[in-house]
């Protein structure tokens, strides 16, 4: 069972690597935010499996907080950072 969890973790990290490629490539801010969102949900999956693999129940609470943070990052980014660059462009 433990080796199965490890294989799953490796595949998840591979998926994260592909997401990093999109962050590097861009071309727009929107694509980069979506890749950051991918980091959030993959991170939750990694933490949940980690909690099971290492028998660390606290990792589940970390996953819960990470899920909330990923949402806040996207909302804050759309509201503040991106909106700000638009105002700059308009003026």
């Amino acid at each position: 069972m433990n080796s199965l969890y490890s294989i799953t973790l490796v595949i998840l990290l591979l998926s994260l690597l592909m997401g990093v490629f999109r962050i590097w490539r861009g071309p727009r801010m929107a694509d980069r935010i979506m890749a950051a969102q991918l980091t959030g949900s993959t991170g939750v999956a990694v933490l949940l499996i980690f909690a099971e693999l290492q028998n660390q129940p606290a990792a589940r609470d970390t996953a819960l907080v990470l899920a909330l943070l990923a949402m806040l990052v996207a909302i804050a980014f759309v509201g503040r950072v991106w909106g700000f660059t638009r105002e700059k462009k308009d003026s």
Partner: peptide, 27 residues
């Protein structure tokens, strides 16, 4: 608790997807 985390991620990804699409359309 695990189902709650899943639900939370579900709402988070749907909401941020919608927000990014909205902002992309705005621009």
């Amino acid at each position: 608790k695990l189902l709650l985390i899943w639900g939370l991620v579900m709402i988070a990804s749907a909401l941020s997807g919608h927000l990014v699409a909205w902002e992309a359309d705005e621009q």
